Computed example of a mutant assay.
Amino acid sequence: MRFPDGIDAQPEVLRTSAAAVREALQRIPPIAEDAVVALVGIGASEHVARSAAPTWRALGIRAFALSATELLDADRPVADVVVAMSESGRSTETVTALERTTGRRIAITNFPDSPLGALVDEVIALDSGPDSPVYTTGYTATIQAIGLLGEHWAGARADWSALPDLAAQVIASARPAVEAVAERFDRARIIDVVGSGASITTVGEGALLLREAARALTAAHETHNYLHGPMEPLDPSVCCVVVGAGREVRLAREVSALGCTTLLVTTDDIDADENLVPIRLPEPPSPLARTVLEILPLQLLGWSLASRRGLRADGFRYEQDDIKLGSR
């Protein structure tokens, strides 16, 4: 699937995948009230884990996130339950990490018959169909699945049914704002992507996809850490994507006042100015649902920059033969 097609396919894929995940959850037993849960992944899946863990903790689940690489040398139990995410089910580090863990193991993957699926005790199949080389459908379907799993275990019931329509709305409404800043982002020396809380997945994945799709030089920052020094190189040659509300709104105004073209992705109603272009998101049912909407403008920006640079975003220049099982 081509990258722009993957962007546009997400509303319908979210709808299809939600039905498949809800069916799978009927076969997923509860966890013990005091169980410790590790959320594990690499790349885009690790970004999802970083946001899912605090969201789950807010629901009362004792969850924490780990990069799969942190478990490659594991020699003792790290959690009672390990939830591993890999769209392909073939990520070498994630499969190896699960081989070294004990306890209950669950996989969220688009390929139940993959090496990861064969290794675990339970599988939640995404049923998200084909994905683009720069992840689109698989990424947002994974966020939705991890959100639904957390609510399933916590006994919470947010209404995710409107998410596909909200995603379609954001894709349509964000295009003009993205195109309004694309030329300036194309000239940027570096693009800083900044956010906090659940939006940290959007920050990490947004910076990653801009590198993958448009070969842009990017940096990902947590908002409050960004205030402690990383802002020092800012000048008009730097562009910023700021994601969130509250402190992020103030930050967006501050960096735009420094001459940095700034795209603000927020649920707040913010006025634009010369260097500040806001994209207002609708209110979603949960923090993780919000991150599904947040990534869509960054995907559009990635494709706009790639197109301006004559890039198809249909593969990678520096493919590695040891990061996916069976790729050699």
Results as ranks from 00 to 15, higher is better:
residue 86 S to D: 04
residue 66 L to E: 09
residue 184 R to T: 13
residue 177 A to V: 10
residue 218 T to F: 09
residue 109 T to E: 00
residue 38 A to K: 02
residue 257 A to I: 05
residue 182 A to C: 07
residue 105 R to V: 02
residue 310 G to I: 07
residue 206 G to C: 12
residue 52 A to P: 08
residue 27 R to P: 01
residue 249 V to Y: 06
residue 192 D to C: 08
residue 95 V to Y: 05
residue 166 L to T: 02
residue 92 T to V: 12
residue 95 V to A: 05
residue 196 S to Y: 10
residue 105 R to H: 08
residue 141 A to Y: 01
residue 111 F to N: 00
residue 60 G to L: 08
residue 145 A to N: 07
residue 189 R to Q: 10
residue 38 A to S: 14
residue 97 A to F: 11
residue 220 A to T: 08
residue 157 R to C: 06
residue 302 G to S: 10
residue 244 G to M: 05
residue 117 G to M: 00
residue 121 D to Y: 03
residue 180 A to P: 01
residue 42 I to F: 07
residue 20 A to R: 00
residue 17 S to V: 01
residue 43 G to C: 10
residue 156 A to V: 05
residue 144 Q to E: 15
residue 134 V to K: 02
residue 200 I to G: 00
residue 69 T to C: 06
residue 281 L to G: 05
residue 221 H to S: 05
residue 114 S to D: 02
residue 274 E to W: 04
residue 81 V to M: 02
residue 131 D to V: 10
residue 154 A to R: 03
residue 259 G to E: 13
residue 85 M to F: 14
residue 180 A to S: 15
residue 35 A to W: 07
residue 192 D to S: 08
residue 250 R to I: 08
residue 250 R to N: 14
residue 158 A to T: 09
residue 199 S to C: 13
residue 318 Y to L: 14
residue 138 G to A: 07
residue 216 A to P: 01
residue 195 G to K: 02
residue 188 A to E: 05
residue 318 Y to N: 13
residue 208 L to A: 14
residue 269 D to K: 11
residue 43 G to E: 08
residue 177 A to W: 02
residue 177 A to E: 12
residue 72 L to W: 12
residue 180 A to Y: 02
residue 168 A to S: 13
residue 32 A to T: 02
residue 62 R to M: 09
residue 315 G to V: 11
residue 5 D to W: 05
residue 70 E to D: 14
residue 227 L to F: 15
residue 295 I to M: 09
residue 240 C to K: 04
residue 323 I to H: 13
residue 299 Q to K: 06
residue 127 D to E: 15
residue 148 L to W: 03
residue 281 L to Q: 04
residue 311 L to T: 09
residue 41 G to E: 06
residue 88 S to E: 02
residue 278 P to Q: 11
residue 242 V to D: 05
residue 260 C to H: 08
residue 121 D to W: 02
residue 229 G to R: 11
residue 97 A to K: 04
residue 200 I to L: 14
residue 110 N to C: 01
residue 111 F to L: 00
residue 30 P to R: 14
residue 41 G to M: 06
residue 108 I to Q: 00
residue 288 L to G: 02
residue 293 L to D: 10
residue 31 I to W: 07
residue 270 I to G: 07
residue 322 D to C: 04
residue 110 N to F: 00
residue 248 E to N: 15
residue 45 S to D: 10
residue 212 E to P: 03
residue 155 G to Q: 12
residue 314 D to W: 09
residue 154 A to L: 09
residue 285 P to V: 15
residue 290 R to E: 14
residue 150 G to K: 02
residue 273 D to G: 09
residue 167 A to L: 09
residue 80 D to Y: 03
residue 118 A to C: 01
residue 304 S to D: 12
residue 305 L to Y: 05
residue 116 L to D: 00
residue 4 P to A: 11
residue 261 T to S: 12
residue 12 E to K: 10
residue 196 S to F: 13
residue 313 A to L: 10
residue 140 T to G: 04
residue 118 A to Q: 11
residue 175 R to N: 01
residue 213 A to M: 03
residue 186 D to R: 07
residue 77 P to I: 07
residue 22 R to D: 15
residue 192 D to E: 13
residue 307 S to Q: 14
residue 252 A to M: 10
residue 151 E to N: 08
residue 165 D to G: 12
residue 83 V to R: 00
residue 54 P to W: 09
residue 313 A to G: 07
residue 126 L to T: 04
residue 288 L to Y: 04
residue 232 E to P: 01
residue 203 V to L: 12
residue 166 L to N: 03
residue 290 R to Y: 03
residue 151 E to A: 14
residue 176 P to N: 09
residue 119 L to P: 01
residue 138 G to N: 08
